[in-house]
Design a protein around this nucleic acid. Structure first.
Lengths: 157, 157
DNA sequence: TTTAGTAATGAGAACTATTCTCATTATATG
DNA sequence: CATATAATGAGAATAGTTCTCATTACTAAA
């Protein structure tokens, strides 16, 4: 489990090097933002945080780099929101296996660290599936959907 | 559990009526296609099947009706594909609680009927989550990701 | 340190799924 | 039958994302 940003950056550097990619300033900025947010973020959120730090990150560069980082196993692009790509650091990088809490009202997505009971149940389920059908399971996604604390407050107000 | 298309159509009619919506020919065609495919389908797949039956379903009408059907609880729009909306009949309509097998290679999505072990584990997990954090869980999504039989064949060929 | 050669950048065009607009057509109701 | 409302369909508009291409920044060899 990667716990400091320094360790994170050096791991990223290795992953990029494996694919002959440079760890440029822009790429480092993106990883830094994702590390510090520690929740899935949309492109505009990433740009906003960068902008707060006077980092000018052009849209096309940001998308291109996110795609490259994804290809190198640094970033994962989630499929969780209706019409927005959300990005987070890959589990293979952080070592933090987790799932997501998705608010059905505002679309906000937050991490939910997994627990061993749930994971055991899922592995069993995956095995059952593999036995029964012709599909090679390599991973799973679990999202819990509902109403986040913010939206709950707004509703009752 | 709805097992015949006739039952399905009458349930849909009721659901629409609750919201003062008519069960028009187009809407019936969409429901029919989704019922018969019995797997999540993109708009273009839906249109293709309709077209095979000489049903001319304009894009704008199809989207509009899918949105209305979703609003009435007839259809569910999945978030499972990178850049395509996928539609299926809602579980509340069919009574068939299931999850999805998503092929990471071709993006194809298929149904996976759930089983009680898995569901029990998930409800427990949901309860644990609710206790620990401020998030009101109302549902869950589980996708198993991997390689579908088709892509497996192609790879080994 | 120069010099290629290659990689990354940035601005804006292009693309694509989806939604919107609005005039026309169909349907239901008094 | 008349009128109000709903649904339709063609195409414009929108928005997230990707592509293009000229420019700039690195890197490595001479």
């Amino acid at each position: 489990m990667i716990d400091t940003q320094d360790k994170c950056h050096s791991s990223v550097e290795e992953l990029l090097a494996e694919k002959n990619q440079r760890y440029t300033t822009h790429r480092k900025s993106i990883v830094r933002v994702l590390f510090e947010l520690s929740k899935p973020a949309s492109l505009s959120e990433i740009l906003a945080v960068a902008s707060q730090r006077s980092i000018n990150l052009p849209i096309s560069t940001a998308y291109r780099n996110l795609a490259i980082l994804e290809d190198c196993g640094v970033v994962r692009r989630l499929i969780a929101s209706e019409d927005l790509g959300l990005y987070e650091l890959a589990e293979a990088l952080t070592g933090n296996h987790h799932h997501h809490l998705i608010c059905e009202q505002c679309g906000d997505v937050n991490d939910l660290s997994s627990n061993s009971n749930l994971e055991r149940a899922l592995s069993r389920a995956a095995e059952m599936v593999m036995d029964q059908i012709d599909f090679q399971v390599t991973g799973h996604r679990i999202d819990l959907t509902g109403i986040c604390s913010n939206c709950n407050k707004v509703d009752s107000a």
